[in-house]
Structure formats: structure tokens, C-alpha cells
Nucleic acid binder design. Structure first.
Length: 612
DNA sequence: GCCGTTTTCGGCCCGACTGTTTTCAGTCG
């Protein structure tokens, strides 16, 4: 992130992430410069909107289309066009001529903000984190007004933390840590309620900090217990209303105390996102109220909250009351990202989001026949016990040798085993001996995870493919091909009459490797036209399609599937993470193939050749 | 810099905690 140069004219148009990075950096530089704060906020807001945009912003703007983006007006729009067409931005270059771009990196040091950065740069010529570290270690910062030896030591400590800061956690790990802390806090005398809030409650794909809310009659007791947790490495701050700690080798955890009976505004505030909250506060202000975690405070004629004896504070017992007060439908936490949910809530058109129980089956799972660890029968029984109507066994195809991909003759052997398992289940059902919770009509379906090979060919012959109940296709090899090649491979599979689902379409591994470089709109168009489902993979390290993409896919008419990609019995429950991401993508049950009953699923698959 | 069923100009979200301070500025979420 240090010194991202403007892309060269010959380079392809900058990606959304590159655009966002540039506008965030402009916002940071303007902050350090001391520019009007609303202007800096405008750049950051535009950057976030671009990063979340479902379409490729630079490509669209380069073609002369000013497709609206919330928070992008005339000035920033012009800058996008300039970047998209020339690869450079004169305004950005001028700014970096005024001050070193590396100053932005100093903002990442905990406790160091724009004012401090400007001060150390102007007074001491400090331009980099390393220079700041050297100066702090040498005791040179304390000459500045407002910086004592203590502050200097904290800056030094902050720089060390920066170097050892862990990645954002995968959601399953974040959930496990949060659950553990919540259980301890719930046992503190006086505590009546513990809520896990923040980005974990919004079910973000990865989680940075953990946020916990407690309702208690004794705030000091719970804060004392919290800051004394055995895993605490440092206490960042602790008052009577909130406290922050950093766990050893782990995340920062923030605790906020809410008074009994007034949880509504606290839940909204601490769940976020910040952008969602800002909009809610604006709506409150329009109605003559100031909204904070404490409640709604009546504004006076001067636009300031009325204080003193006339002050009027309205607290809210729950979140529904907060949204009602603002004439909004209740926004599910997963949608609180300022991505259109406020408008939808005002107009009564929030989606009826999918839930785990809407799923009738799972279209993607493995056994010990390829790279799973449990037997076919054990996986099928576990799926049946989860109440599903069907499970598709999709072991890898022959060319993926590393995963023990199945040769055609092993596929035939596997088919016989599946028939045996289904026969046994049918006998049980006929005898009325189904285990409790199991669907008597449960069927194990025979599928495969078909490799889309580097040259774009599919990994089995058509006559074999035609005999599977359902085929899931995916890319594992030759990930570094060009966008044109990767797009063509994916669309080639989509157009095959035998392929029913594209699994983990972007091929990403969170914190490990980026998405495949694919022309997504072209893929979505082909998938919509052929009725090929696009998967939201529930493995916590994948969660692929990402929510922004899944939302775009649905808007373009695609059908989705939500699958576990289980390689062992316990991983069958990974569909929960997939369902959560689908909710973030505004997905309703009817958008998802595996919410359909068995007969409808099979009819959909059988109809594919006529759709191609 | 953005934006408008109050506004095309004049607004723009809010409070806790900390430190260096005798009343507040900076940072953070």
C-alpha cells in the first residue's frame, strides 16, 4: 500500500480495488493536509462504494457511461474517467508532489492520527514508519507540543504491534473465540444478556475485531472480568461504559455495557456498519433527533441536542423500535452496509432472506473415494440425519490426481455403491424404521466435481457425463491464465449441456490467494441464459461467490446453489456460512436451486440440454 | 466533495477514552 503509483497508460483499466486504494489514499493525504473533514470523508466514502461496486467501474467509465454510484458525484466521477482513460490522475500526482505518499502509512500506527502525522513531518521531516520508530526510540518526538515521553513510548509500542498484526480472521475462528468470551461474560454476576455484535453479527466474510455487548446491573464488575481474561495481552482502555483489549496472538476485542431496558440503540450502534449508522443518524436528524448508542436525544432550534432539565432522551427496548422510530422496516444485520438497504426499508421492499432451513439438500460433497475422509455411506447417513431430502456426492474427476480423482471405471463402481446405499434407505423407510429427523424419501445422488482443464476441455466424455444425476464443474489448475482464457474456460463449462453447477467460481482462498481474473458479467450472462447454477461455497476459507458478486449474479437472472463442499461429516454444517453470505447478497429462497424439492431439482437438471 | 418530497447552498453523525491538560484536542470505533 506504500506509494501505489498511477497505472501506466498502456496498462489495462484499474480494477475496483485499485481505484478504491487511490481514492482512500487521496482521502488520507487530504486529512494530513488538514483539508475540510467532509471533503476527506467524501473521498473515503466514494472509495468504499467503488470497492463494493458489482460492476467494473473503470471499464464502464472508460466507455463513457456514467453509471451512478452512491457518493460519487461530478468531481470524483471526472477523476475516475481520467484514471480509466489515461491511467493517470493529475490531481493525485499534484498531491503526492506536495507531500510524500508514505505519510499515509503512518496513519496505520495505533494512536497516530492525521494531526500527529502532520506534526512529525513538518517539525522533524519524518516520512516513513521506520523514521518514526527511530525518532521515537531516540526520544526526539517529545519536543513536540502534546507529545510526552509516555506518548512516545506508546507510539513505539504501536509500531511493534503493527508489524505483528494478524490477518483478519476467517469467520469460523472468529465465531469460536467470540463464543468463548461471551460464555465467560455471561457468568459474571449481574449480567443479564450478552450479544455478539460488530462485523461478526453482520456475518462479514472475515472479521478483524470482535465486539461484545453486555446488559448488566454492575458494569464495573463485567469490565474488570473482561480485562482480566487469561488470553488478554494488553488492555487498550477501560472505563465504566466500555473497554478494549488485545488477545494474545489474536484480535482486538471491544466490550460495551448497555443499561437494562435500552438495548435497541446500543445493538444498532455496535452492530454497524459505520456507514449504515451514519445514514440512520442523518435520518434521525431530519426528524429532529440526535441518535447515539444511548438513544434519541431531542434537538433544539439551534440543531444541537437539548441539554439540562429540558433534555429529552428516548431509549428503545429493541432494534425493531429503533427502526420503527425512523419509519423503516427492520433491517437484518447482514444487510447493514449502506448498500441500498435503507431505501429498501423505507419503501417496504427488503428481501425475505433465505435461511438454513430453506435448503432441501446439498449439491457438493466428497467422500474417501477422492480427497474426503469419510465413507460414502457415512456421508449419506449424516446428510440424511440433517433432514435433507437429497445429497449429491461429487468426488473429483480423473485429472485432479492430487485429490485422487476418479477414473471412469471407478465412477462405475461408485454408482453401484450409491445404489446400495439408496436401497438400504428405501428398505428402512418402507419398514417405518427411519431415524428421527430423517426424510424417508432421502436420496443420495451421484455427481462429480468435474475439472475444467487448462485447455478448457471437460474431464470426462459426454456419454459418461450424461449418466450422472448432477454435475458440478470447477477450475483448480492453470489459475494464472489471462482473463480471456479463464472466462472462456468457465463459460465453456456453463454452456455444456451436462454441467449443472459451477463450484466456487472465483477460486479464491481467503487470506491466501486472490480471485481468478474473470469477466464476471460475461459469466453471469451465460449462466443466466443456460440456467447453470453458480455456487456459494460454504467452506469458511472460500465463501465463493462473494456477496457482491452473488448479488450481481441474481440481478442478472442467475440461479445460485449453496453447498458445503464437505470433505468430512462435520463440514456438512458449513452450509450455514454459505447461507449467511447468501443473506449478505440479498438472496431469497427462490433464487437457490437446492431449496427445491427432489423432483423439481431433477426436472431442472433434465431440462438443461434444451436450455443450452 | 456530495447532495436535496425542507435545500442547487449550506449543511454534512456521535460519544468514550486518553493524555496533557486547568477545559480540550486527538484518536478511535
Amino acid at each position: 500500500m506504500t506509494e501505489p503509483s498511477s497505472p501506466q497508460p498502456s496498462a489495462p483499466p484499474p480494477s475496483n480495488d485499485e481505484l478504491a486504494r487511490i481514492f482512500h489514499q487521496i482521502g488520507d493525504l487530504l486529512e494530513i493536509k488538514g483539508e475540510l473533514v467532509f471533503k476527506t470523508v467524501a473521498y473515503h466514502r466514494a472509495a468504499d462504494a467503488i470497492a463494493h461496486s458489482p460492476f467494473d467501474v473503470a471499464t464502464v467509465y472508460a466507455a463513457g457511461e456514467r453509471r451512478p454510484i452512491a457518493g460519487v458525484g461530478a468531481a470524483i466521477g471526472d477523476k475516475i474517467t481520467e484514471l480509466a482513460t489515461t491511467g493517470r490522475l493529475a490531481f493525485y500526482d499534484r498531491l503526492r508532489a506536495e507531500m510524500p505518499a508514505t505519510l499515509v502509512d503512518l496513519l496505520a500506527v495505533p494512536g497516530v492520527g492525521p494531526k500527529t502525522v502532520r506534526a512529525v513531518w513538518e517539525a522533524l521531516g519524518i516520512e516513513t514508519v521506520e523514521a518514526l520508530r527511530v525518532a521515537a526510540a531516540a526520544g526526539q518526538l517529545r519536543v513536540l507540543p502534546g507529545i510526552s515521553a509516555g506518548t512516545e513510548a506508546r507510539i513505539l509500542e504501536g509500531i511493534e504491534q503493527l508489524a505483528s498484526r494478524p490477518d483478519r480472521m476467517l469467520i469460523d475462528r472468529a465465531q469460536a473465540i467470540s463464543d468463548q468470551i461471551a460464555a465467560v461474560l455471561a457468568s459474571v454476576p449481574g449480567v443479564t444478556r450478552v450479544v455478539q455484535a460488530g462485523s461478526l453479527r453482520r456475518r462479514r466474510e472475515t472479521v478483524g475485531d470482535l465486539d461484545l455487548l453486555v446488559e448488566t446491573a454492575d458494569p464495573d464488575a463485567v469490565i474488570a472480568r473482561f480485562t482480566a481474561l487469561p488470553d488478554v495481552d494488553r488492555v487498550l482502555g477501560a472505563g465504566h461504559a466500555k473497554a478494549s483489549v488485545v488477545l494474545r496472538g489474536g484480535p482486538q476485542v471491544d466490550l460495551m455495557v448497555m443499561p437494562e431496558g435500552g438495548a435497541g440503540t446500543y445493538l444498532v450502534h455496535f452492530t454497524g456498519s459505520a456507514a449504515h449508522n451514519v445514514v440512520l443518524r442523518g435520518l434521525a436528524r431530519d426528524r429532529g433527533w440526535s441518535l447515539s448508542e444511548k438513544g434519541f436525544l431531542r434537538l433544539g432550534a439551534d440543531g444541537q441536542p437539548v441539554t439540562g432539565a429540558e433534555a429529552e432522551l428516548r431509549t428503545m427496548p429493541d432494534e425493531a423500535a429503533v427502526y420503527r422510530f425512523l419509519d423503516l422496516d427492520v433491517v437484518p444485520p447482514e444487510l447493514r452496509e449502506d448498500q441500498g438497504e435503507i431505501e429498501a426499508a423505507r419503501e417496504g421492499r427488503l428481501p425475505a432472506l433465505i435461511t438454513r432451513t430453506d435448503l432441501r439438500g446439498d449439491l457438493h460433497s466428497h467422500s474417501e473415494w477422492s480427497d474426503g475422509i469419510h465413507t460414502i455411506a457415512a456421508m449419506a447417513e449424516a446428510a440424511r440425519l440433517r433432514g435433507y431430502a437429497y445429497q449429491v456426492l461429487t468426488d473429483h474427476s480423473q485429472s485432479l490426481a492430487i485429490a485422487k480423482g476418479l477414473t471412469p471405471d471407478r465412477v462405475e463402481l461408485q454408482r453401484a455403491i450409491i445404489a446400495e446405499v439408496n436401497a438400504r434407505f428405501a428398505d428402512q423407510a418402507a419398514a417405518g424404521a427411519c431415524p428421527p429427523g430423517a426424510d424417508p424419501g432421502f436420496r443420495l445422488l451421484h455427481g462429480c466435481e468435474l475439472e475444467i482443464r487448462a485447455d478448457g476441455r471437460l474431464d470426462y466424455e459426454d456419454d459418461l457425463l450424461a449418466r450422472f444425476d448432477l454435475v458440478v464443474a470447477s477450475v483448480h489448475v492453470a489459475r494464472r491464465q489471462t482473463r480471456a482464457e479463464l472466462t472462456a474456460r468457465t463459460i465453456g463449462a456453463i454452456r455444456s449441456p451436462h454441467v449443472d453447477v459451477i463450484a466456487h467460481p472465483a477460486g479464491r482462498m481467503l487470506n491466501e490467494r486472490p480471485d481468478l481474473d474473470i469477466d464476471w458479467d460475461a459469466v453471469f450472462e451465460a449462466a443466466a441464459a443456460t440456467g447453470t447454477a453458480l455456487e456459494i461455497n460454504g467452506s469458511p476459507s472460500r465463501l465463493d461467490l462473494a456477496p457482491e458478486r452473488a448479488r450481481r449474479a441474481v440481478a442478472m437472472g442467475c440461479v445460485l446453489s449453496i453447498d458445503s463442499d464437505a470433505h468430512r461429516i462435520e463440514e456438512l454444517d458449513c452450509v450455514r456460512w454459505g447461507v449467511e453470505q447468501a443473506r449478505r447478497a440479498w438472496v431469497e429462497p427462490h433464487h437457490v436451486l437446492n431449496t427445491r424439492p427432489l423432483a423439481e431439482l431433477l426436472a431442472w437438471v433434465a431440462a438443461k440440454p434444451s436450455r443450452v
